[in-house]
Design a protein around this nucleic acid. Structure first.
Length: 274
DNA sequence: CAATTTACCTGGGTGC
DNA sequence: TGCACCCAGGTAAATT
C-alpha cells in the first residue's frame, strides 16, 4: 500500500484523533505475528503509558509515549482505523489499542507484510536495527543532487531501483519512483552512476514536487489504501505514467511504455524521458 | 562485497 | 461455478 505520502496522511490524521496526555490502557494482539512476531515488550512497557505525539520516519509511523516509542510499518496492506465504541472485529484485524480518553485504534492487514516494533529510548531510534540503515528524508535538508550523485558513484543499478532503495532516500516506492522520473524527464533504466549532476537536480526537484502534491491530495489509492479516517486518497487521478501502459503521454501523446525492472512494474514515456 | 532472486501472505481479476 | 494463474503500494533473507 503505502509510500511516504500515504504514511504521512495517516500520521496527520492520527495526530488529530489521539489526544496528547491520554493513556493507552488496553493492548490486544489477535495473533502472535505479522511479518515478524508482535513484540510482547509493547504490552509490558506501554500498558498505561501516556501518549505524547505522532511522527513519521520514511514509511514508518512513530507513536511517542512517555515510556517508549511504538513503530508501525504498514507493509503493502496495513492500515489503522479508529472507533469511539468498542470495535466489532473484522477479518484481518490483528491489533487493538484503547486510548482513554480517546478512540480505539485497530490495525488491519490482510497480507501481514506490516509489523510493529518497540524502542524504549527515543534517543536510540536511529540505532534500531530496522531503522539504522535508512537514508535521507526526501523533504528534509541534505537531500540534494550532490548527495545522490555521491551515493550513485560506482553503482551499477538503474536509477529507478536506486531511488526505491530506502538506504538512499526513504519513502519512495514503486508508484512514486515512476512518477518522479517522468517529471524529471529521466528514463528509469538509465544506470544510476551515469546521470549528470543537473539530472540529479531535476530528480530532487521532482521528488519534492510529486511527494508534496501527493501529500496534499491525500495520497494515492490504487486498490485498498485508506487513510485512518477511512477516506481514499486523490493523487491516483494525477498519476501521469503509473498504470497507464499504452495510453497517450499527457505531454507528447506517445504511448506510455511499461516493463518490469527489479521485479516491479515500471512506467515511462519513451519520448519525454531520455 | 553488490546485485539479483526468492519468500513472506491474501485477494481481486482474468482466462479457460 | 471452479480452478489455475498472474498481479498488487514492501522488505528482508537467501543466493549469485
Amino acid at each position: 500500500m503505502p509510500e511516504l505520502p500515504e504514511v504521512e496522511n495517516v500520521c496527520r490524521t492520527l495526530q488529530g484523533q489521539l489526544a496528547e496526555g491520554s493513556s493507552l490502557n488496553e493492548i490486544h494482539f489477535y495473533r502472535k505475528d505479522l511479518r515478524f512476531p508482535l513484540p510482547e515488550e509493547i504490552k509490558r512497557n506501554l500498558l498505561g503509558a501516556t501518549f505524547e505525539s505522532m511522527s513519521r520516519r520514511g514509511k514508518y509511523l512513530l507513536f511517542f509515549f512517555d515510556r517508549g516509542v511504538l513503530l508501525s510499518h504498514l507493509g503493502m496492506t496495513g492500515h489503522w482505523r479508529t472507533t469511539e465504541e468498542k470495535p466489532v472485529l473484522e477479518k484481518h484485524d490483528h491489533v487493538v489499542l484503547r486510548f482513554s480518553p480517546g478512540p480505539y485504534l485497530i490495525y488491519n492487514d490482510s497480507r501481514r507484510f506490516g509489523f510493529l516494533l518497540f524502542v524504549k529510548n527515543r534517543e536510540e531510534l536511529n540505532e534500531h536495527p530496522r531503522l539504522r540503515h535508512l537514508g535521507k528524508e526526501p523533504l528534509g535538508s541534505g537531500f540534494n543532487a550532490e548527495y545522490l550523485q555521491g551515493l550513485s558513484r560506482g553503482v551499477s543499478r538503474i536509477v529507478k531501483v536506486f531511488l526505491m532503495d530506502q538506504a538512499v532516500v526513504v519513502g519512495i516506492g514503486n508508484i512514486y519512483a515512476s512518477e518522479v522520473l517522468f517529471r524529471a524527464n529521466v528514463r528509469p533504466n538509465r544506470k544510476a552512476s551515469g546521470l549528470k549532476l543537473a539530472e540529479w537536480g531535476s530528480i530532487v526537484m521532482s521528488v519534492r514536487e510529486v511527494l508534496g502534491e501527493a501529500i496534499a491530495s491525500g495520497g494515492s489509492t490504487i486498490r485498498d489504501y485508506r487513510n485512518a479516517d477511512g477516506n481514499r486518497g486523490g493523487f491516483q487521478n494525477q498519476h501521469r505514467v503509473y498504470g497507464r501502459e499504452g495510453e497517450p503521454c499527457f505531454v507528447c501523446g506517445t504511448p506510455i511504455k511499461s516493463k518490469v525492472f527489479g521485479g516491479r512494474s515500471t512506467y515511462w514515456c519513451p519520448k519525454c524521458q531520455r
